[in-house]
């Protein structure tokens, strides 16, 4: 009897340790703690070029993360990149002349959508679209333009 009860305790401890390990992995290691299953609303923005933007890339305003990208597709009619974003519904006071731009965090960091609020009094609603966008800066293109420009200046 004594033997089985110690055995039970050890099995209990083992299972508790395993579950504690899973909890540790879920909350301390992964993004589950920051991932709140809050209500979101959807915004769409059309970019000339969305660069290296990916699904789950952050959407931020004034440097604070307020949502994430939930889908990127190519529109074969307008040849634009359609980026669908989910924004936390507590931030539902974005003006309808908000500008969306694709920026890079640091020189080689990941790309994110930055929203810059305009001055309008009307707010963006669910399934609304952002009309003023600024495409991602492609580093190779910028360097190419710079080189081309300096070369043509030298000729003069």
């Amino acid at each position: 009897m004594q033997h089985t009860s110690t055995q039970d305790t050890l099995v209990g401890l083992f299972v508790a340790a395993g579950i504690a390990g899973l909890f540790f992995l879920s909350f301390q290691v992964s993004n589950l703690s920051s991932f709140t299953q809050q209500d979101t609303y959807t915004l769409t923005a059309r970019f000339e070029n969305s660069g290296g933007l990916k699904v789950k890339s952050p959407v931020s305003a004034a440097g604070v993360k307020i949502g994430q990208v939930s889908g990127i597709s190519f529109d074969p009619k307008t040849y634009q990149s359609v980026v669908v974003m989910k924004i936390d519904s507590q931030y539902n006071t974005l003006p309808d002349d908000t500008t969306a731009s694709v920026f890079t965090a640091g020189l080689l960091g990941e790309q994110y959508v930055s929203l810059e609020p305009g001055g309008s009094d009307a707010f963006l609603k669910d399934n609304g679209s952002i009309d003023i966008t600024q495409p991602a800066i492609i580093l190779e293109k910028a360097i190419g333009q710079f080189l081309f420009k300096s070369a043509s200046e030298e000729k003069k």
């Binding site: 083992f14 395993g18 579950i19 390990g21 540790f24 992995l25 290691v29």
Partner: peptide, 15 residues
């Protein structure tokens, strides 16, 4: 049943 628990412990302790 014990394999997932053991693997979780392994990863957690390793981290």
């Amino acid at each position: 049943l014990s394999m997932p628990l053991l693997a979780a412990i392994f990863s957690a302790v390793g981290i």
